[in-house]
Design a protein around this nucleic acid. Structure first.
Lengths: 133, 133
DNA sequence: ATCTTCATGACAATCATTCTCATCGCGTCC
DNA sequence: GGACGCGATGAGAATGATTGTCATGAAGAT
């Protein structure tokens, strides 16, 4: 496993972006992160935010989901495999575990002769606060 | 429950679109359906295909998924709740059942105080044919 | 300090999807 | 068998997220 990946340089921008994602409890899109950074005085470019978040996602540093309307959103999560329960109102996210799903997935793969199965499992709901408000 | 929905008219275009979706075993995007129809001599407009498929999806006549690269794809499926195992290569789709997932979902909702939970659960893999080829 | 190379930022380009609007043609009522 | 009202259509423009381009900047190694 000779990593041919070029080294990721540490830049001011990436640090700012990383901080911004970590500061959020909810999933945020590249555009949202960019907005926040700009509003707090940063000069990062939008393309840079897109590139950095993609790189971080590829490196497993952040999780990604696709919002119901199709946008990609990022969030710093707990390491290890898990799924998400996301509030449609405020975006608040809870990490959840789905015991049994992995083995069911493997069984299904075997049954139908599919290989390299990947799953996309997310839950969207309305949290107590948003239901009340 | 006074249905305020306007009546859906039967038009040549909708019939063509419906036939095209039904003819496909795989999920297909609006653009793909439009291409097929054009190639077989139809004159339907792209916007019409988008509108018709959306309406059919809203009416529960077809299932939709979001492909890994973000496009929306449609397919005529078996009635009743189920999930999909889609081949990344040829798009071949198998409908699968996930016993236990619904009750797990309800339990999770209760635990975290979320309401109106919706789930997005799809599997992507490579089918035997595509692995071989 | 220098040099190599990846990173950045402004902006253009893509691409899926939606909107606009003039026109068409279902479904219906006479 | 018309005439009519209104949803449906189609062409093209508009939108909006994401990606590409390219000249310049600045990490990290020497």
């Amino acid at each position: 496993m000779t990593s041919t990946e070029p080294v990721q340089r540490r830049t001011r921008q990436r640090a700012e972006i990383r901080d911004a994602v970590e500061a959020s409890q909810a999933f945020a899109t590249s555009q949202e992160i960019h907005d926040r950074l700009r509003h707090s005085g940063s000069t990062v470019g939008l393309a840079t935010v897109y590139r950095a978040l993609q790189a971080m996602a590829a490196g497993g540093e952040v999780d990604t989901i696709r919002t119901p309307d199709g946008q990609v959103a990022y969030r710093t999560c707990t390491p290890g495999h898990h799924h998400h329960l996301v509030c449609r109102g405020c975006g608040k996210t809870v990490e959840i575990d789905l015991p049994g799903l992995e083995s069911q997935t493997r069984a299904i793969a075997r049954e139908y002769g599919f290989a390299e199965i990947d799953h996309e499992v997310e839950f969207f709901g309305t949290c107590a606060d948003c239901t009340a408000g």
